[in-house]
Design a protein around this nucleic acid. Sequence first.
DNA 1: GCCAGTTCATACGTTTACGTATACCAAAAC
DNA 2: GTTTTGGTATACGTAAACGTATGAACTGGC
Lengths: 296, 296
Amino acid sequence: MNWQEVNFDWNQVRAFLATAEEGSFSGAARALSTTQPTITRQVAGLETSLNSLLFERSTRGLRMTLAGQQLFEHVREMGSAASRISMVAQTFNNEVSGEVSITAVDTLCVKFVAQAIRRLKHSAPGLTLRIISSVQIQDLKHRDADIAIRHVRPTQSSLVAKLVGNWTASFYAHQSYLDQIGLRPDSADHENVEIIGPSDPVQFIEICKGRGLNLRIDQFTLPCTSALVAHEMLRAGLGAGVTADVIAKAEPEFVRLWPHVPPIDFPVWLVTHQELHTSKKIRVVFDVLEQVLKEA
Amino acid sequence: MNWQEVNFDWNQVRAFLATAEEGSFSGAARALSTTQPTITRQVAGLETSLNSLLFERSTRGLRMTLAGQQLFEHVREMGSAASRISMVAQTFNNEVSGEVSITAVDTLCVKFVAQAIRRLKHSAPGLTLRIISSVQIQDLKHRDADIAIRHVRPTQSSLVAKLVGNWTASFYAHQSYLDQIGLRPDSADHENVEIIGPSDPVQFIEICKGRGLNLRIDQFTLPCTSALVAHEMLRAGLGAGVTADVIAKAEPEFVRLWPHVPPIDFPVWLVTHQELHTSKKIRVVFDVLEQVLKEA
DNA sequence: GCCAGTTCATACGTTTACGTATACCAAAAC
DNA sequence: GTTTTGGTATACGTAAACGTATGAACTGGC
């Protein structure tokens, strides 16, 4: 390594990375558990070392310069490597204690992750589980979460994934809703059914059409961004919607609709970072989650 | 980025990298232009943060632990990214001043790099050229040099290379040596000729055999690790040896031997890092070197 | 239009990390 | 055997970086 040319402060690079990610000095300070003047100083110091302006400052925030954008790519790679360092170091710790974070769709969090936590409370009492129920996919590569439950096969080579099941989902409605609109469970009628569904129904309509079910866009009267909210809407008898069969079977009042429509099947993947997979505490949680999901 | 988990000091990682590369805290301190207590502290701090011992200390030096070795891989990648940051930042500087380092076999340094320097002295007076004449190939990726003259096509994708010539090399000896051993220039006799050659002649003998010249290993009485030293030995009339024709033709007393042996041909590549190729000052030197080498 | 909640910039006292100096140890050179 | 030359560890005064406090400017809700 030619340290003559690489003579800038690496912590200042870290400040730059956090600032770029958070969009402000103050935000970076919060993320790094430090103060805004420190971040401001560090970024200014890096700008001096590299002899380039990284951000244009204004009273209402920052804008990255062209130079900053070009450097950002490599700065992010530095951050990725730093992330891997912390993960590999985790590996050396054989104690099953501390925190493990899990991300999944909220309905799964409620049912299966809760079940996993219950079991771990006995077998690994020192463990704290952080649940990140998120609609958008969390970035495992940068360690936003340790373990994820996903329904598509991960493509990144740095992740290890295990297929723990192939589940199915069907249309359901609460008995009270059927009574209300006067629909018989075995009826194929779907003209006047209101659908509780995703906020962007276009793609969803296509999937249904492939299965012989033609829905109109105006039937999607209750778009929900959260699957858990959608589930509660179903239970409240406000319409019909798609639910995983394993979840619906726990609700005695849920009635499956349109038996002629074949269920939608989807895989269930348990995913973690390859560096973390050898960590004892991650492994323990991973294995329990696998067990719980396979039992479903 | 999850800064909760990546909570170590990045400068301490830099200290670890330098220590691992240099093999000692003191060496790392010299490389980073700081002091040994600082490096010792920083590495100790990293060991605390990562909760792993990185080096086993003894009074006569260090030995990296298994944990250190496993982490080193990612630490090095962090260093590579840091290196790229400095290179990209160079790019923004449009002034043709400062330092540019060139690495090449020493004979080429003497003849062509010197010629390039002479031209640059007029066109770019603010420039300082550092010449790294090295037998082993310098690591351009980590910026041990900015520009290299090589005789094999570089394989690394992060390097840009330009073919500036296809040169030939033949056997030469000084007139005085021929007089001494009584060899006629057009003679095919090579039984009693002493060869000034590489320190490891086995591979070299194979190449000669392929060209119809059978040399014995005991003829290599003057192995040289430096091409420049070998050249001076030739000039001093101590034996025969292979020299690039473009270099030999500047020596009026050099006589080409064994015309029946076809010349060895080899490519001449001018190489730099892809990130550096857009830097103004690097570009200026690169272009002059290209010009000089193509004229040869 | 005003006020609460942002943002970045700046001044100043305190803490932290650095460099100097030195002790100590082991292997190589004399 | 002694000296030289490498290395790490530790103590302590100094200098650099940090956090607190505060100011100025802009946004958005009321």
